[in-house]
């Protein structure tokens, strides 16, 4: 622990075990490829596949070297190096178990290079699926936020109404929104409308609940100091209530975003002709597990990026805390 925050000496900057792992990854590439146990087309024989893995890992190593040179804090560099180590170890184990020794079922476990190669080849359709998915999120989630936040501010402002509305929203919010999907399909003709509606329903209650509890939890002195300034009603909601409740609103919004993605992918797997959930489901139905894994990983990357952006926004909005 003591070295975690220590000063960065040249030794601490560049002499790290992670670089040995990188060399180990390069070294195992020299091993002979394993024999395929299946006849006909096999991933193990794709000649340029290892190249994708090597380029990917080399890019991480390059980034690590750049961070090593420019990092100001030991803790930041160590974190990055640790994450790189995890990726290296994963790639080494994965490569050995598939391409080099073929100890897993090769139909289900393609080597890392094959997956990266597939992702690059599918980049264009994948982008289409990503934007189809995000568009649904934007529609359902933002519509929910636009309605739930003002509604929550209004309901929460009355103690009596807010208490009752909180209980109702807790009850409806406790229903796993996945169960709305079949009913939604019966209710609405177009899949996209159904998904947007289900995402809307799933996001609405956490945001409404968060906003109402945020409003009801505002410290009385804050309200009083606004009242003694003679702040008019509308201005009060905008300049005071909304800001004071913002931490709770964002908590609800974050919860809603998590649920939205679960629902989005579930809905896409059930009834869609586009989107990341469709991509995964479709290719696993066709027995193309390389693309199934690509889809799963891309979903992980997209959601991570969305949450990264959300957290940045949250930090910015709550910079006064």
């Amino acid at each position: 622990m003591s070295t975690f925050n220590a000063e960065l000496t040249p030794k601490r900057r560049f002499l790290r075990v992670v670089h040995l792992l990188f060399l180990a990854f390069l070294a195992i590439q020299a091993l002979a490829p394993a024999y395929s146990k299946i006849r006909g087309k096999t991933d193990l024989l794709v000649a340029d596949a290892p190249l994708y893995a090597i380029i990917f890992i080399a890019a991480i190593e390059l980034a690590l070297i750049l961070v090593s040179i420019f990092a100001k804090k030991n803790s930041a560099l160590t974190l990055f190096a640790d994450l790189a180590s995890v990726v290296y170890i994963l790639f080494i184990a994965w490569t050995l178990a598939t391409a080099k020794f073929n100890v897993l079922r090769e139909q289900l476990f393609p080597p890392p290079g094959i997956i990266l190669r597939q992702a690059v080849q599918d980049a264009r359709p994948l982008l289409g699926h990503i934007s189809a998915s995000l568009l649904l999120i934007v529609k359902g989630y933002f519509l929910a936020a636009i309605i739930a936040i003002p509604a929550g501010l209004a309901f929460g402002s009355s103690e009596r109404f807010g208490t009752a509305a909180t209980m109702v929203s807790k009850f409806i919010g406790s229903i796993p929104p996945v169960v709305y999907i079949p009913y939604g399909i019966a209710l609405l003709p177009a899949f996209k409308t159904v998904s947007a509606m289900v995402i809307f329903l799933a996001s609405f209650w956490p945001i409404l609940g968060g906003t109402m509890s945020g409003v009801m939890l505002i410290d009385k002195p804050i309200i009083n100091s606004a009242r003694v300034l003679g702040v008019p009603k509308i201005s009060m909601l905008w300049h005071v209530t909304l800001h004071a409740a913002l931490p709770q609103i964002l908590l609800g919004a974050q919860q809603a975003l998590t649920v939205s993605f679960i629902l989005l992918t579930s809905a896409e797997m059930i009834a869609a002709k586009s989107g990341l959930g469709f991509y995964v489901k479709n290719y696993s139905d066709l027995g193309n597990y390389t693309r199934t894994i690509v889809g799963v990983l891309v979903i992980g990357v997209v959601i991570s990026l969305v949450f990264f952006a959300f957290n940045k926004l949250q930090k910015f909005l709550l910079r006064w805390k």
Binding site: S225, R227, V228, G230, A244, L246
Partner: peptide
């Protein structure tokens, strides 16, 4: 309440989401 009476409380007079200047400006505008 009315702005012809200025009030200073023991605590929480200021809005935490406004800078010092924004707090004063907000009072002036009211």
């Amino acid at each position: 309440p009315g702005p012809e009476r200025g009030v200073v409380f023991q605590q929480y007079s200021l809005f935490p989401w406004m800078t010092a200047r924004a707090n004063v400006l907000f009072g002036i505008r009211q």
